[in-house]
């Protein structure tokens, strides 16, 4: 058995160096144990392997971007899966396009899940303003599913270059002072500020932009699953908005019905559809 020690959960460079050495020595995938930090993962792990000066070899560019993304996934198998895929790709580089292949498909799925997590972090991080000496700092608490904090640093730096901010997560933290980025240890929710007065205004907006006549809870849940809710202040309003929606809509309709004459018969073509829709909404 060979054991590879990687420096971090998203240590792509470490994985690549080790994989290069292993390929040169023709070590089969099942003979390698991948380990992050010094935590032992295999009692019987044998000699250690460090990055050697193996000769670089070419792989398709798509493999590199795929591997870089998939390595951020939280499944412990990812390093081994990628190494096995690498061996396969070296046999036939073009084969990587075959997403019907179960092994390639699996890696594509990992990379896709990571991409999704990265995107949701960009969307759902909520900063709270605190005063930090005589200047302000924006601090957010976020719980990513995968190892994506570092991958998202660039996005937040480019967007908020001229602000001082920190993003705290259970997997680590990062801090931007307007000029440079520093990394910190894992944090806890209580390390983040508890309030921001602008949240009241934001919640008022969230409630007002919702159209009760279009209630579609499933569509909302699909895009914004409950696991994200606890770090988003506006989601506290959702139960009440949903509970009041039907009544608000009926009130609008009733109010109009009482005060206005019946609308013109020209609208008849829509009636058929109206009935069908009402039928679907019966419960």
């Amino acid at each position: 058995m060979r054991t590879v020690h990687l420096e971090a959960e998203d240590d792509f460079d470490g994985w690549r160096d080790a994989a290069r050495a292993l390929v040169t020595e023709r070590v089969p995938a099942e003979r390698v144990v991948w380990q992050v930090g010094e935590r032992p993962t295999d009692l019987f792990s044998g000699e250690r392997i460090a990055a050697t000066h193996a000769k670089p070899f070419g792989v398709p560019r798509h493999f590199v971007s795929l591997a870089r993304q998939a390595i951020r996934h939280s499944t412990p198998e990812r390093f081994a899966l990628l190494y096995a895929l690498l061996l396969r790709v070296l046999e036939n580089p073009h084969r990587l396009g075959d997403r019907a292949d179960p092994r390639i498909h699996r890696i594509e799925r990992l990379a896709h899940a990571v991409g999704h997590d990265i995107h949701k972090m960009q969307a759902f991080v909520r900063f709270r303003k605190v005063s930090d000496g005589d200047r302000e700092r924006f601090v957010a608490w976020f719980e990513p599913e995968h190892h994506i904090l570092r991958a998202n640093a660039r996005f937040f730096i480019k967007r908020f270059t001229n602000m001082r901010w920190s993003i705290l997560t259970p997997r680590g933290s990062m801090h931007w002072d307007g000029e440079s980025l520093s990394e910190g240890p894992p944090s806890q929710r209580r390390d983040a500020p508890h309030d921001d007065q602008v949240e009241t205004v934001w919640k008022a907006y969230y409630a007002a932009i919702f159209n009760p006549a279009r209630l579609m809870k499933k569509a909302m849940m699909k895009e914004m699953p409950r696991k994200y809710w606890q770090n988003m202040p506006e989601t506290a309003l959702i139960p009440a908005l949903i509970a009041g929606a039907y009544e608000r809509e009926q009130r609008m309709i009733e109010q109009a019905r009482l005060t206005l004459p019946v609308f013109s018969p020209e609208q008849a073509p829509d009636e058929r559809e109206n009935e069908r829709e009402n039928g679907r909404r019966a419960q």
């Binding site: 759902f124 969230y206 579609m216 809870k217």
Partner: peptide, 15 residues
């Protein structure tokens, strides 16, 4: 980027 979704399922991206 959709920063939130209202209970009507619509994306909230802009003010």
């Amino acid at each position: 980027i959709c920063h939130a979704y209202a209970p009507d399922g619509r994306c909230i991206s802009l003010l």
